[in-house]
Structures are given as C-alpha cells and as structure tokens.
C-alpha cells in the first residue's frame, strides 16, 4: 500500500465528508443505471442486445461496488456495500435524475446510455490522475469500459437516428424526453467545488468540452439536431427524486427488505 491509499485517513473532516459524498453520487449513478439496464435482461429486441445490456449493467455495478466499499471504509460505521444498495431509502440516494427514468423504448435506453457514457468517460479520464489511489486506480479501469459503452450505444444512436422514419422518430422522441435531465450532469455545488479544488473531481468545464465533442460528432452522424443543454430538472444530488425511484427500489431492494441479512 502506498501513502496515497491512506489519503482518506489524512483528510480533514470536511474533505473526507466530500469524498464520501462523491462516492455516493458516482456509486448511486452507476447502481441505479445498472439496475435499469438489467431490467432489459430477457426483453431486449434481439439476442445480441440481450447480451450487451446486462454486460454493460455489470460494468456499472462493478463501479458501484467499488464506490460503496470505499464509502463504507471512510464512514467507518460498519456498513457494507449491500447496506448502501439495499437498505437506504429513496431520499438517501444521490444519483442524478436521468438514471432513474424508466427505460422507455430501446432508443430511449440507448440514448440515455450514450449520454451517460459520454459524460463519465472524460470524468474518469480526469480522475486517473486524482490524488487518491483508490479513485485513480478504479478510474483507469472504468475509463476503458466507458469507451466501449460509448461505442456500442453511440452506434445505436446513429443507426436509429439515421435509420427509418420510425426509428428516427423514436430517437428524437427520446432526445426530447431526456433533454431536460442532461443539465444536472454539469451542475455544481459547494461539495463539487471543494472536490474540484482538491483534484478529486475534474473541472466540470473540461468534462463538458469532451462531452460536447463526443455528442456533436455522434449526433451529426445520427442526423439529430445539435444538443442544447438548458437548466432543466434537477435535485437528485440533494436526494429529491421522482416517483420512478420508488418503484425501482421496491423491486431492487425487495429481497433484503423481506428477508433481512439474506446472503447467497
């Protein structure tokens, strides 16, 4: 173990709290989106996508596990990964609202996956140099996985956007539906500002530049209109969620709620 691994121990109280908050934000984004993708298992429009969607879900849940495991150590209260995933109530979750939105049709799911990966890829890329070994080491793995998600979901955005009249209509409808939720990716608050100052979060402006470039290139090929990000619906980072989350948690958390402590 290098000294960097012990950063959390050395952090002043506030920064440890901020790192904990960051891990729950990233962890919750990945867990909830991973769960949404897993809902497609057995329902995808073709066998190849029945493989792809749960495979991508697995990558996302791998990241959630890292975040929760690390959060548990920082918190030091005896909670484990599963406690964060299965025993928190809706208002305790800190993911952005886009990831909890119901899957909609395949175009909607793929566009959401593309937007998420196009945002997370530069974010992880920036974190590979973070002064925290756990975060930086994981970022080195996750950045590769996100590049593959961009490729896969981006190709669907192009194929459907530049496909038949019906597929294009659906992709545009997905964009209309998801548009108001994109702004939340780039929101900042006091916690995020301190994390950026400490090098534990990349500059949101730099992430935005990379996101815009990936989206612009893909949308051009997909014959989609240029993306305009406006201040939209937000509140997820403060624990204010929509009705959809309650339904999601009722399914995802059922087993631990009904049979507390159950293990495989």
């Amino acid at each position: 173990m290098t000294g960097r691994d012990e950063l959390a121990d050395d952090l002043a109280g506030d920064l440890a709290d901020d790192l904990l908050a960051l891990l729950l934000r990233i962890g919750d984004d990945h867990l909830i989106l991973g769960h949404r993708l897993s809902e497609w298992c057995g329902h995808a429009p073709m066998l190849e996508e029945d493989l792809a969607l749960p495979n991508m879900a697995l990558d996302l849940i791998g990241t959630a596990r890292m975040c929760y495991g690390y959060a548990a150590e920082i918190e030091g209260g005896g909670r484990g990964e599963d406690d964060y995933a299965f025993l928190r109530d809706g208002t305790d979750f800190r993911h952005m609202l886009m990831v909890e939105r119901p899957n909609g049709d395949f175009a909607h799911t793929m566009l959401r996956q593309f937007l998420f990966a196009a945002w997370m890829h530069p974010l992880w890329d920036g974190l590979t140099g973070a002064p925290d070994a756990r975060l930086a080491d994981h970022a080195g793995k996750a950045v590769k996985e996100m590049a593959y998600h961009i490729r896969h979901s981006g190709e669907w955005v192009i194929r459907l956007g530049d496909g038949t009249a019906e597929s294009a209509r659906r992709m545009r409808a997905a964009l209309d539906d998801l548009g108001p939720y994109i702004g939340e990716m780039f929101e900042s608050d006091d916690t995020a500002a301190r994390l950026v100052a400490a090098g534990l979060l990349p500059d949101p402006a730099a992430v935005r530049v990379a996101f815009d470039s990936t989206v612009a290139r893909t949308f051009t090929m997909a014959q989609l209109p240029p993306l305009e990000i406006s201040t939209g619906i937000s509140g997820g980072r403060a624990g204010r969620h929509g009705e959809a989350l309650g339904h999601l948690l009722a399914e995802m958390q059922f087993m631990q709620r009904a049979y507390p402590g159950l293990t495989w």
């Binding site: 066998l47 190849e48 493989l51 792809a52 495979n55 697995l58 990558d59 593959y148 490729r151 896969h152």
Partner: peptide, 13 residues
C-alpha cells in the same frame, strides 16, 4: 462483428 458483447465480459462475437 456479430455481437459487441459475448458470453463473458472479455469477449465479442
């Protein structure tokens, strides 16, 4: 390429 994802996380078809 037939499928970008395969039977394990590390393979495509």
């Amino acid at each position: 390429e037939l499928s970008a994802f395969g039977a394990t996380a590390c393979k495509a078809q």
